Simulated scan of single mutants.
Amino acid sequence: MDIAVIGNEEFVLGFRLAGLRRVFVAHPEDYQERIIEAMQDPEVGILAVDGEDLKNLTPQMRAKVTDSISPVIVTVGGAGMGDLREKIKRAIGVDLYKEDE
């Protein structure tokens, strides 16, 4: 499984420089189609998205992205979709940060 990123050229540039190979460049007018494409790619396990880009989705698609566990959608910046800890817990079924008492 690969880590991928979706967003405009400026957003994905840093990820490309960090070595990410799966990059989906999207503009506001085609963002929804590109995120559907990225989510349907069987090789993508984690998809990083810009929180600001989520406003380009319909409410139904935003809910689907928010609830996705395969791939796990990680919001970077912007008005995110919630706590990363909760996403990991939902995806694998275990709270990795839970401290034993």
Rank of each mutant, 00 (worst) to 15 (best):
D2I: 13
I3M: 14
A4N: 06
A4W: 01
A4Q: 04
A4E: 06
V5G: 00
I6M: 04
N8T: 11
E9T: 12
E9C: 07
E10N: 15
E10R: 14
F11D: 00
F11W: 05
V12A: 02
L13C: 08
G14R: 10
G14L: 08
F15A: 11
R16Q: 13
L17T: 12
A18Y: 03
A18L: 12
A18D: 10
G19P: 03
G19V: 08
G19S: 07
R21E: 12
F24Y: 12
F24V: 04
F24T: 03
V25W: 03
V25S: 05
V25H: 04
H27Y: 15
P28N: 12
E29K: 12
D30L: 06
D30W: 05
E33P: 00
E33F: 00
R34F: 03
R34P: 01
R34V: 14
R34N: 07
I35Q: 05
I35K: 03
I36R: 15
I36Y: 08
I36F: 08
E37A: 10
Q40R: 10
Q40V: 07
Q40E: 13
D41F: 01
P42K: 14
P42G: 05
E43D: 14
E43L: 11
V44L: 06
V44W: 03
G45S: 13
I46V: 13
L47I: 07
L47Y: 04
L47E: 08
L47M: 10
L47G: 03
L47H: 03
A48H: 13
A48N: 14
V49K: 01
D50S: 11
D50L: 09
G51K: 07
G51Y: 05
G51L: 10
G51P: 02
E52Q: 15
E52F: 12
D53V: 01
D53T: 10
L54S: 03
L54R: 00
K55F: 11
